[in-house]
């Protein structure tokens, strides 16, 4: 624990520890919070994100469910109607395909279809993303598919401190939140995390690196890579800004417009397939908001238009520092 200038203290935590501490704190703060999912109770989650909750809060509030993603998602609707605050875990985001009809057709539209009678204070956590050589369907980045389901908020933290601040806000949020945790970040990202109550409002982007030649706009683990690229290009005298969107719904349109207006050049990075990916939405937003401030076309860095590959091809698929660096150079050469 370290003291900070504003009188608070911080702890050096991995993203996983930050998530676990936040779940403990939110369950202690509000006894309506219940955690449900596969292996979340006795095993503390396959990544240990829910470790210690079962021992501390008991079998009624921390529940191992059968392997049934649809009813995990569907039961959160009923639990929310009954006045609880469910925090469900889908063990890997790729498994959410087996819950899509509940997530898209029910969780996302509960408030809308009942015109506000019920408050869907539902959080669904799921790990996703590449870099850890998982079996098939464990690493897919499906955020764009969910962004097309009106009614869901999609939160994708990039740092340990944000994992805490955004998860606490998500659990307290009256709208349903899909909280996506990068597999590589669980133990691969660590940093100072404020102790005590730490809330970050949803829909407010963060400038991860200051700069004014070009802005890299991205989210989740790709923020880490974008920052490394920015730091590396700094030695060449290039000033690369990194804008961490933190959530893609709600989207901080204003922050995107400001960053692009100030830099004039932009690169958008995502881990999903290129076609229909969320980067395309960011590019469209730039066109609408600040097209005339562009000095060069916006460049996208995405996965390829194939299903997420098996382990030996993973590094070819997932954007890395080299591809991001090439994209930054390209946008500086264009226009």
């Amino acid at each position: 624990m370290t003291d900070t200038l504003d009188g608070g203290t911080v702890s050096d935590l991995t993203m996983l520890q930050a998530i676990n501490e936040t779940l403990h704190a939110e369950m202690a703060r509000d006894d309506r919070v219940v955690v449900l999912g596969e292996d979340v109770a006795r095993n503390g989650g396959v990544f240990r994100a829910t470790e210690g909750l079962f021992e501390k809060f008991g079998e009624h509030r921390v529940v191992d469910t059968p392997i049934s993603e649809a009813v995990i998602a569907g039961a959160t609707v009923g639990l929310a109607i009954a006045g609880l605050v469910p925090v469900a875990e889908i063990q890997f985001l790729g498994f959410s395909y087996q819950a899509m009809h509940q997530l898209a057709g029910q969780v996302a539209r509960l408030r809308y279809r009942t015109q506000g009678r019920y408050e869907p204070a539902i959080t669904i956590r799921a790990p996703f993303g590449g870099g850890v050589r998982t079996p098939e369907l464990h690493s897919d980045s499906l955020e764009a598919q969910f962004a097309n389901m009106a009614g869901l908020k999609i939160v994708m933290p990039a740092t340990a401190a944000d994992a805490k601040g955004l998860l606490a806000s998500s659990i307290r949020e009256p709208d349903p939140v899909l909280f996506l945790e990068p597999l590589r970040g669980y133990r691969g990202i660590r940093g100072d995390v404020p102790n005590g109550d730490h809330l970050i409002p949803l829909g407010v982007a963060r400038t991860a690196r200051e700069g004014d030649d070009v802005v890299i706009i991205t989210w989740s683990y790709q923020v880490e890579l974008a920052c490394r690229v920015a730091d590396s290009l700094h030695s060449e005298g290039l000033s690369v800004r990194v804008l961490d969107l933190r959530s893609i719904v709600p989207l901080d349109i204003q922050a995107i417009a400001e960053a692009v207006t100030q830099c004039g050049r932009a690169v958008v990075v995502e881990e999903s397939c290129e076609t229909g990916g969320f980067a395309a939405e960011v590019v469209a937003t730039i066109n609408e908001e600040c097209f005339w401030s562009l000095e060069a076309p916006v460049v996208r860095v995405s996965g390829y238009d194939v299903p997420y590959p098996v382990g030996m091809l993973e590094d070819v698929y997932v954007p890395d520092e080299a591809r991001i660096t090439t994209a930054v150079r390209r946008t500086l050469e264009l226009g």
Partner: peptide, 15 residues
């Protein structure tokens, strides 16, 4: 889809 909702509601009432 309403059957999981009913299970969730009744479960919530017991909690």
């Amino acid at each position: 889809t309403q059957i999981p909702h009913a299970v969730g509601i009744s479960w919530g009432m017991t909690l």
